[in-house]
Design a protein around this nucleic acid. Sequence first.
RNA 1: GGGAGAAUGCCCGAGUGGCUAAAGGGGGCGGACUGUAAAUCCGUUGACGACGUCUACGAUGGUUCGAAUCCAUCUUCUCCCA
Length: 408
Amino acid sequence: MENVFHVLKERGFIEQCTHEEEIEKLLGEESVSFYIGFDPTADSLHIGHFIQIMVMAHMQRHGHRPIALIGGGTTMIGDPSGRTDMRQVMTPERIAENGEKFKKIFEKFLSFEDDKAVMLNNAEWLLPLNYIDFLRDIGAHFSVNRMLAAECYKSRMEKGLTFLEFNYQLLQAYDFYVLHQQQGCKMQFGGNDQWSNIIAGVELVRRKDGKQVYGMTFSLLTTSEGVKMGKTAKGALWLDPEKTSPYEFYQYWRNVADADVKKCLALLTFLPMEEVQRLGALEGAQINQAKEILAFTVTEIIHGENAAHEAQNAARKLFAGDNGDAEIPSVDLSKAELGDGRDIVFLLEFAKLIPTRSEGRRLIQQGGVLAAGEKVTDPKAVYTASDFKDGKLVLKKGKKAFKQINLI
RNA sequence: GGGAGAAUGCCCGAGUGGCUAAAGGGGGCGGACUGUAAAUCCGUUGACGACGUCUACGAUGGUUCGAAUCCAUCUUCUCCCA
């Protein structure tokens, strides 16, 4: 079987390794147990986590054993790495709830049968810890001097870092130590922002057990301009269809910058690299084909084939100017609520295309609103039941935002 | 524990008694150009019953005809000393 290290390297996942040659050798020789930690700070995973999930999937396909670690314990502290502000302290109930949701998502991407992958929660061993014992056993191995010098705290050295957060690294290192002992875990992966935490774990295992374990980090998904990808107007690009609809999700990828197409295909899909190369090399208007494939494939992996087809059809129809079908994101408006007619601003607000009525008026004045294909020029224009063809009215805001109102 | 300073719109950041819904930048949104791209350019960016009204410059109270700007108390944060 092909060495997964080469696959990950070729696809551009790998950013830093603790011991490149040894890791390559190890992954080529035996089935390795490795772990990636996910802190349940929100009620859904987002696209940043998805990269890590892809890595686990690639690894599992090549015969290795993923340990998906849910950070029920570490989330009680909050990881300060690479952040400019302190994380909000979360209640244990919320953390547990979010953790359950994470579990369900992992089950979609990994096979947990026959111990081919395991899912654990570090709350199990972190919550019962005794402070004094922990300090003596684990804390003694850490150098504050070294920790402070680490790049990941840099921005926090200016703004302030609490002792609570400062302890995060010890806990993550301890996770690795526990997993090494209990699960024979030899590697830890993570986003590039996890580098310091991962090295800390590698060193702790070496000091405590005298064993060599390894760490590797993966590129964070950034645009060619270095901005974090996966940000939408509403915040993160979530994997949960309730939080980010498959259509929105599809559109996000359909609209990535030319320069990022190849990278996204390599990191977010399982398409063979020859295909990725070919698609990424397309130029001019042709690269739109590659973007369609990217959008469809990623949506398919996350939301399934049907949802991907629906999203694609809706997008194609809307951008082809054919507003005829029901796959467009829509809202229902009762006849009673429409009454003798409502003004355009009401309809825009009702369809959640605008946050305030002022925004709606401004938009109309700037010529950014189309109703049933006609540009709306008067903010006071009133729409009645007769304007709904077959009980439908498609509103278009700008070039890319559509919403259909169904009269019921 | 002692001392110094800061808190402004989504973010950064000017403003130190009326001309301030608050400069400038970033971001967002709309338009032009295009390929549902990037870059660029133009416009816009508190809300609402919209040439007017209301709410806003950490919180509360006060001085004043009038406060983001002055005073008092409080809260939070940063820095220096311990």
